[in-house]
Write a protein that binds this DNA or RNA. Structure first.
Length: 404
RNA sequence: GGGUCGGUGGCAGAGUGGUCAAUUGCACCUGACUGUAAAUCAGGCGGCUUCGGCCUACGGCGGUUCAAAUCCGUCCCGGCCCA
């Protein structure tokens, strides 16, 4: 069994960096960690999508920090809770996920987060599925569990308050989500749960449940959300999500598309750059002589490095600078087959750089299509053999090479 | 069960017989500019098209009308109030 590190400085760092709240208190948790006790902690991820995203990585990263201290980590796949759908994410469509899909997704999840958390080696993280215990809950159990909470308590949830105000429906099963998540804590008998600050309510339900069923104090640690200074969340609606299964070049580029306000939080939450370097960046960002772009390049590099390794990160950076800063044509351009006397519009659609004929036409009309550097303004253009090997550029980031 | 209000494009949300493929905001796309795939500004944003138009769409179905997202009937779903 691995040894638990109880160095105060290291513990302070883990308890401070990117942390928003600790329940019941930071001091209590610190006391336990200093004591040298090996605690069991977890964070749950609902397998609703093929890929986790950088927002999920924040909590995984924190798990990884605890792992380095020698604690027992559970990476929980919420295959059961995923079926209910977390009301936190109101846009979540409750798509039924099959067991196979879940297994497939979760296998990828492990790979996706392996830059942050180790599943092998000395103190490997354990992977569990909450359907293991939640599937077995019967109606009677459910009633017993739910009798620990009042409707009023559930309604306190900001999300529900909002819907009440907007006179939008709240379905009964949505009340059950926090219970299901809370029950995970009980079933795994954990000491600590980690999650984003938006998960606070759910996690605190687990704390209550733990207290009433096992008479045990579960700690809850919430992470800051990745937001810019206006409080705007990095999320799907803002369209700047970075999926962890993205290739290195796209990952790099997507980070570069973040607004400047996300740079410092990005370093703090998504990397493990030393505190001193962080402070330095924070300082330099205030100085208008420095170009935020340079810090963003570094952030994109660091994030890509964690997920894809150093070489890939360097390659992605070069690619980005060449293609976007210097507007060079990249080296690896996918070849897409063309037919003799094929209309350019049809070709763009078949090459997947336009979503429909109309879209292709619009892009041409708006001056977004170039062939070998020459802007095309005739959307009726027909391709012939003389275009063999030429490069079509669509917008800023799509390139295809014509191949007959 | 009764009353009442409502269901519109990826989302939010206008429109209440023709001028509606549908105002606006967000998201998205393209361009300009730049410090970047940031910010800002401009344009675009259902599909097909022989570029004249055509087709499909405002919860479902049916109807009235020359003409319906808009009116009527019916069904499904939701909010609020009453029981």
């Amino acid at each position: 069994m691995s040894k638990v590190i109880n160095d105060e400085k290291l513990i302070d760092e883990v308890l401070d960096r990117g942390v928003e709240n600790i329940f019941p208190s930071r001091e209590e948790l610190k006391k336990v960690l200093i004591s040298g006790k090996r605690i069991r902690l977890y964070c749950g991820y609902d397998p609703t999508a093929k890929s986790l995203h950088i927002g999920n990585a924040i909590s995984v990263n924190k798990l990884g920090q605890f792992q380095k201290l020698g604690h027992e980590i559970i990476f929980l796949i919420g295959d059961f809770t995923g079926m209910i759908g977390d009301p936190t994410d109101k846009s979540a469509t409750r798509t039924k996920i099959t067991r196979e899909e879940t297994l497939e997704n979760s296998k990828n999840y492990q790979k996706q987060v392996s830059g942050y958390l180790k599943f092998d080696g000395e103190n490997p993280a354990k992977v569990l599925y909450n359907s293991e215990w939640s599937d077995k809950i019967n109606f009677k159990d459910l009633i017993e569990i739910s009798s620990n909470f009042t409707v009023q308590q559930m309604l306190q949830r900001d999300m529900f308050q909002q819907r009440l105000k907007e006179e939008k429906p709240i379905y009964l099963h949505e009340f059950l989500y926090p219970l299901a998540q809370g029950y995970d804590s009980v079933a795994m008998d954990v000491d600590l749960e980690i999650g984003g600050n938006d998960q606070m309510f759910n996690m605190l339900c687990g704390r209550d449940l733990m207290k009433s069923i096992k008479n045990k104090d579960k700690f809850v640690l919430t992470m800051k959300l990745l937001t810019d200074d206006t409080g705007k969340k990095m999320g799907k609606t803002e369209g700047n999500v970075v999926n962890l299964d993205e290739n290195s070049e796209n990952m790099f580029g997507q980070v570069m598309a973040w607004s400047d306000g996300l740079i410092v939080p990005g370093f703090e939450l998504c990397t493990n750059l030393p505190e001193e370097e962080l402070a330095e960046i924070r300082e330099k960002m205030k100085d208008s002589d420095n170009n935020p772009r340079d810090f963003k390049l570094k952030l994109a590099y660091e994030i890509t490095k964690i997920n894809h390794g150093e070489d890939a990160a360097r390659g992605a950076r070069d690619y980005f600078i060449k293609t976007f800063s210097q507007k060079e044509i990249p080296e690896d351009i996918p070849e897409v087959k063309a037919e003799e006397s094929m209309k350019l519009i049809d070709y763009l659609v078949s090459a997947n750089v336009a979503s429909s004929n109309s879209d292709a036409r619009r892009k041409i009309e708006q001056g977004g299509v170039e062939i070998d550097g020459n802007k095309i303004d005739d959307w009726k253009l027909v391709l012939d053999k003389s275009y063999e090997g030429k490069v079509i550029k669509v917008g800023k980031k799509d390139f295809v090479r014509i191949k007959f």
